[in-house]
Simulated assay, not measured.
Amino acid sequence: MSRPVIALDADGVLLDYHRAYAAAWQRAFGAHPEERDPQAYWPMDRWKVPKLRLWRRSRFRREFGEHFWSTVPALPGALQACHRLREAGYHLVCVSALEKRFEGARLHNLRALEFPIERVIATGHHEAARSPKADAVEAIGAEVFVDDFLPYFRGVASHIHTALILRAPNGSPNTGPEMELASSTHQDLPAFTEHWLSR
């Protein structure tokens, strides 16, 4: 019998996009940004950075290429949580709202960090009535889908357990009537793993 599948988002679930964002800022402008709000959901709110215009915005965007998506650090406890899930008999697949051209970079990143994940599906990003991740999650036969962005649960089949990672609350989109789309909520991936394996 094949292993049951858990679909895992990357940024905010497995990987620390906030730290990678700050490192990209330092590469672009020569100084690491000061932290403004450690509980901010979005990196522009967490770090004390100005709104960019014209050439500075273009300069910063150039940092978000192969190197960036290959070197995002792991979130605390995420690697160990994944190994626990794998040892419990689950097959782990990363489903990321990343541009398709960076799919290989993301897989390289996860392998370099020794995550037990051998496949990445990049879906791209758009907000609509149906999440761009819904088709991918269903196509791989996932039993569980773990994400930190509530709108990505739109359209996911009701038989799939949707586990929402709440993480930083300030400015979070994870509020309101759509919270009913989440089958369960957890502070981070280790908390989800403990919950799921102790059922």
Rank of each mutant, 00 (worst) to 15 (best):
R3L: 15
V49W: 08
Y17R: 12
T185A: 11
D45E: 14
P173N: 07
C94H: 06
R53P: 00
I121K: 06
K100R: 12
A40D: 04
W69D: 02
G124M: 11
W42Y: 15
K100P: 02
P132H: 08
R130N: 01
A28Q: 05
L75D: 03
R111T: 09
P132N: 07
Y41C: 08
R36V: 02
V137Y: 02
K48E: 15
R62K: 15
E178R: 12
W42E: 10
R130Q: 13
M1A: 15
E103C: 01
R19N: 09
R199H: 15
R53S: 10
D9A: 09
R62G: 15
A134V: 06
G171W: 09
G171L: 06
P4C: 12
F68K: 02
H161K: 13
E118Y: 01
D16Y: 07
G124N: 13
A122N: 07
G176K: 04
L107P: 06
S158Q: 14
N170D: 11
L107I: 06
P169A: 11
A191K: 09
A81N: 03
V146N: 06
F115T: 02
R53A: 14
F29A: 14
F29H: 01
I140D: 04
D148S: 06
A7W: 09
K133V: 08
D147S: 08
I160W: 02
L75Q: 01
H83D: 03
H18W: 07
A7P: 03
L52N: 00
H91E: 15
R59K: 15
L98E: 12
P190S: 07
L92S: 01
W42L: 07
E127N: 10
G65R: 07
P43A: 10
R199C: 12
I165M: 05
R57K: 15
P4E: 10
W55S: 12
V13M: 06
I6E: 03
A22V: 06
E118I: 13
I121H: 01
T162F: 13
A168Q: 14
E118H: 15
G65P: 00
P190E: 07
A105I: 01
G104Q: 04
R86G: 14
L181N: 13
D45H: 13
L92C: 03
P173Q: 12
L85I: 12
W47G: 00
L189P: 04
A97D: 08
A31G: 05
A157C: 10
K51C: 05
T162Y: 14
R61N: 14
A105L: 00
R86M: 09
R130H: 11
S184D: 08
G104C: 05
A31W: 03
M1Q: 14
P169R: 11
T162W: 07
T123N: 09
H18N: 13
S184C: 15
S2M: 12
R84P: 02
A23I: 00
P169C: 09
P76L: 03
D37N: 15
Q39P: 00
A142E: 10
R167P: 00
H126M: 08
V120R: 03
Y90N: 05
D37P: 01
K100I: 02
S198F: 08
P73N: 07
H91F: 09
F60T: 00
A81L: 00
R3D: 10
A28R: 09
